[in-house]
Computed example of a mutant assay.
Amino acid sequence: MALEIRRADQSDRDAVAGLLDEAFRDDPVSSWVFPDPEHRAAVHGRFLGVFVDVALAEGRIDYAVDGSAAALWLRIPAGDPEAEAAEDEVPARMREAADPDNERCELVGRLTGEVHPTAEEHEYLLMIAVTPERQGEGLGSELMRPVLERCDREGVPAYLEASSERSRGLYERLGWEFTGDAVRLPDGPLMWPMWRKPRAGAAA
Rank of each mutant, 00 (worst) to 15 (best):
Y63I: 02
F178L: 10
R6G: 00
H39P: 03
L160S: 09
A92S: 13
C151E: 01
W73V: 00
A92C: 03
S30R: 08
A69C: 06
G188E: 04
A78C: 04
P157T: 05
F47N: 13
R110K: 15
E154K: 07
A17I: 06
R196V: 03
R95D: 00
A78M: 09
S164R: 05
I5A: 00
D26K: 09
G45E: 15
L170E: 01
A70T: 07
T112K: 15
K197P: 06
D21T: 08
E120S: 09
E84Q: 07
G201S: 01
R46S: 13
V115L: 15
S164G: 03
A55G: 01
L74D: 00
Y159E: 01
E87P: 00
H44S: 12
D27E: 15
P132T: 02
G180L: 03
R25M: 14
A83K: 06
V147I: 06
P186T: 01
A98K: 10
L72D: 01
Y159F: 12
A42R: 15
E96F: 11
A182S: 14
A23Q: 02
L143H: 03
A78K: 05
A2P: 15
A15M: 05
E154N: 02
R150T: 04
L107H: 03
L125C: 12
L170T: 07
G79R: 14
V147M: 13
R166L: 09
G155R: 06
E154M: 03
G140M: 13
I128F: 14
L20N: 05
V130A: 02
F34V: 00
L190Y: 14
V54Y: 10
A203Q: 05
A119G: 12
R95T: 01
S31C: 15
E123A: 13
D80R: 01
S68G: 10
Y63K: 04
S11W: 13
V183E: 03
A162T: 09
R40Y: 10
G109V: 04
S30A: 13
P117R: 14
S167Q: 02
E89L: 13
C105L: 04
A203C: 07
V183W: 11
A70F: 09
P193M: 06
P198G: 04
F51E: 07
P81E: 00
R145A: 13
V16Y: 07
G45Y: 09
L107D: 04
E137T: 08
